[in-house]
């Protein structure tokens, strides 16, 4: 009860009702939507979830990672490999996946934070680790090398092994996205969350008022990596294939960062709003380029749209939208 009160806190009833209604709609969505729209919704939830995970490190604690594909890739490969080789289902495998990704996060974090790499230098370190790992997986037979790892496609529902159609994956990613949202809200309203914000604003001043800066940053990267690994597990079982060239790709890392950046860094709704905007734009431009029969025009429009948003809404879409709606995500 105490936890519920803290989570709900001083959120206006209007927001709580809207969120409740939205959740109810999302719960019945598979019955209402066709296959195409369900797949769009799945994409939105996926980006909202990984965005939330990345936002903990960047939006809250202020540490720029451009290598989050590392954690998603490791998570996916570990869980998929355990299932492929030993028949260990993902519900058990995810513990190994999370442990490995969290350890990787701890290593990257320790190297970066202990030796005070900040800003772009820390970002370069995260990219480097992601790239090393990609090369290593290219040569690792257990993981299928550069030829990739394939899970047998099987649409008969088997919840124990996370096998089934889009509806199953929809509910899993919905649970993850909702869970991450609640977790982030709880973290922000905690001492640790406030310490992160203080570090993001000024680490030296934070340390002078007693914030154990290194420990707080380490916790941030470990939580962020662990959550991102879960997205990787989900991704591997949803798409049934993994290649080092895509799982650890720079592009994968970048796409994880886009929803929170477009939506609003450091806000709870930013990653969600950003995921809706980005996925919506992506789909719209795909249709447009199909209609125009010009291949590749999608990327151009997509890039231009991002440019326009970043130029006109540098703080992200959500703070602006919240203002228009008369809501204000309380500035901590």
């Amino acid at each position: 009860m105490n936890l519920v009160r803290r989570l709900v806190g001083n959120a206006p009833p209007r927001i709580l009702w809207s969120l409740g209604a939205l959740l109810a709609l999302l719960l019945i969505a598979p019955a209402l939507l066709g296959k195409y729209w369900l797949s769009v919704l799945i994409l939105i939830l996926y980006f909202a979830y990984v965005g939330q995970a990345w936002n903990i490190l960047m939006g809250f604690a202020g540490q720029l990672s451009l290598g989050h594909a590392l954690y998603a890739g490791l998570g996916g490969y570990i869980a998929a490999g355990l299932y492929f080789h030993y028949g260990i289902g993902p519900w058990a495998g995810l513990f190994a996946a999370v442990a490995v990704a969290a350890t990787a996060g701890a290593i990257v974090g320790y190297l970066g934070f202990r030796f005070s790499l900040a800003g772009v230098y820390f970002a370069l370190l995260t990219i480097a680790f992601s790239e090393f790992t990609r090369v290593a997986f290219d040569h690792w037979a257990w993981a299928g090398g550069s030829g990739g790892l394939f899970l047998k496609v099987d649409a008969t529902r088997d919840i124990v092994n996370l096998r089934g159609g889009p509806v199953l994956f929809y509910y899993v990613i919905l649970a993850l996205a909702v869970g991450a949202f609640i977790l982030c809200r709880a973290l922000l309203e905690s001492r640790l969350g406030r310490y992160w914000l203080a570090i993001r604003e000024d680490a030296e001043a934070a340390q002078a008022v007693g914030v154990p800066v290194l420990r707080c940053k380490m916790i941030a990267i470990v939580i962020s990596a662990a959550l991102t690994a879960l997205a990787g597990v989900w991704n591997a079982f949803y798409y049934n294939n993994l290649f080092p060239e895509t799982a650890f790709a720079m592009g994968r890392s970048i796409e994880i960062t886009l929803a929170p950046i477009i939506g609003g860094l450091g806000t709870l709704f930013g990653p969600v709003v950003g995921a809706v905007v980005l996925t919506g734009l992506g789909e719209a431009f795909t249709d447009l380029s199909d209609a125009l029969r010009i291949s590749g025009i999608k990327q151009i429009f997509y890039g231009l749209a991002l440019l326009v948003i970043v130029v006109y809404r540098p703080a992200g879409v959500w703070p602006w939208l919240a203002d228009k709606l008369g809501l204000k995500e309380r500035q901590p």
């Binding site: 001492r191 406030r194 914000l197 604003e201 000024d202 030296e204 007693g210 500035q331």
Partner: peptide
């Protein structure tokens, strides 16, 4: 205090001081 002031710029005045107070009080 710092000679060249170091406020947590993006946080409210109250939250700036709250970060300091969290050092002695566990609860927000």
């Amino acid at each position: 205090t710092f000679q060249l002031v170091k406020p947590f710029r993006g946080l409210s005045v109250l939250e700036n001081v709250t970060v300091g107070a969290l050092h002695r009080h566990r609860h927000l």
